[in-house]
Amino acid sequence: MAPTAEGGSVPYPVIRPMLATVAPLPAGSEEAAWAFEAKWDGARCVVNTSGDGTVRLVTRAGNDATSTYPELGPLGAQLRGRPAVLDGEVVVLDARGRPDFGLLQRRMGVVNPRRTARLAMEHPVHLVLFDIMYLGGSLLGTPYHERRALLSGLGLRGKNWSVPAHVVGHGQEAWEASLRGGIEGVVAKRLTSLYTPGVRSPEWRKTKHVMTLDVVIGGWVAGHGALGGLPGAVLAGVEEPTGLRYVGSVGSGMSDRERRDLADYLGVLARPRSPFADPVDLPDAHWVEPRLVAEITLSGWTSAGRLRHPVWHRLRPDLTRLG
């Protein structure tokens, strides 16, 4: 039994979420042994209920998020009489019904009741439930396909939560559907996989969509420590009819040699003012003539129009802009 803040116990165990490894989707010849789910761009959440109509929400880091997402409280009524532990992902959907991590960030960590109530109206969360680890007894040793069938049979449907469908043996179709739906990627789960709390298991595989983009370098910020004096990140822009629009900084993925080479190139292109059409609030920025083009990868865009998870790939000398 799990301890409570009052020193008593509740009729469910503390269970950490099982994690997926980053890997390609199973080969076509293996697909029949796997189920495929959407990979949601949100925050992992374990739902605990004593069966008394209340719920306790716990983040992957082990923090209590119950007061942060008050709109999920009514889920407890659908689990009344059944002590349970469920696994899911908290997301905020944009106007097109797609997960927007930037909007979710506005909700994360907020505990003030008045503010959470206001945010719940402005940016309501949706809890995507995809596994169950306890229902009056442990399900950790139960195969995934049986757990998923049990979860689907609970009839957990509400304004702010759902149990989305999964498919068995059709990985490529799931991949293409996630692309069309603007979903972050696909998670493949072996049908016979047991639930191993806190373990990053090869029995679960996550595969994310990655976009490639050419950006114009309009400036840079220095790195710290051993990178002092070298570009820690470049300031990226994309051409629009109104001029060069700032879309964020890119530093991850650069080698030391690339940083040294960039320092030489950018030193020649220094200029006193920002080349971006929109304001960029970076007091330590070094501005450059927007001549160099870089190829980066990203997982998508934030609601503010910034790069999400950008990673440096290479310079594109073939696309260098002439003065």
Score class of each variant (00 low, 15 high):
171 G>F: 10
25 L>P: 02
27 A>N: 07
269 L>F: 02
263 A>C: 14
110 V>M: 09
33 A>E: 15
322 L>A: 12
314 R>K: 14
164 P>L: 10
226 A>G: 03
73 G>P: 00
109 G>T: 06
312 W>Y: 15
151 L>H: 07
21 T>V: 15
235 L>R: 07
210 V>C: 12
41 D>P: 13
133 M>H: 05
205 R>Y: 01
139 L>T: 03
42 G>C: 07
68 T>M: 04
23 A>I: 08
319 L>M: 11
60 R>L: 06
218 G>R: 05
17 P>Y: 10
10 V>K: 14
50 S>F: 05
203 E>S: 12
18 M>V: 08
122 E>R: 15
124 P>W: 04
301 W>E: 01
105 Q>C: 10
256 D>Q: 12
243 G>I: 01
198 G>S: 13
250 V>P: 03
172 Q>N: 10
266 L>Q: 04
299 S>W: 07
117 A>D: 13
56 R>L: 15
209 H>T: 10
224 H>F: 02
147 R>F: 00
97 G>T: 13
169 G>E: 06
300 G>I: 13
143 P>I: 01
90 V>K: 08
20 A>E: 14
166 H>F: 13
212 T>D: 14
81 G>Q: 11
228 G>A: 15
30 E>R: 13
256 D>G: 02
246 Y>H: 10
149 A>C: 05
115 R>D: 14
232 G>Y: 02
43 A>H: 14
299 S>M: 12
116 T>H: 07
312 W>F: 15
172 Q>E: 14
14 V>W: 12
37 E>P: 03
191 L>T: 09
25 L>W: 02
90 V>H: 03
187 V>Q: 04
152 S>C: 08
308 R>W: 08
142 T>I: 03
117 A>K: 08
76 G>C: 11
70 P>L: 08
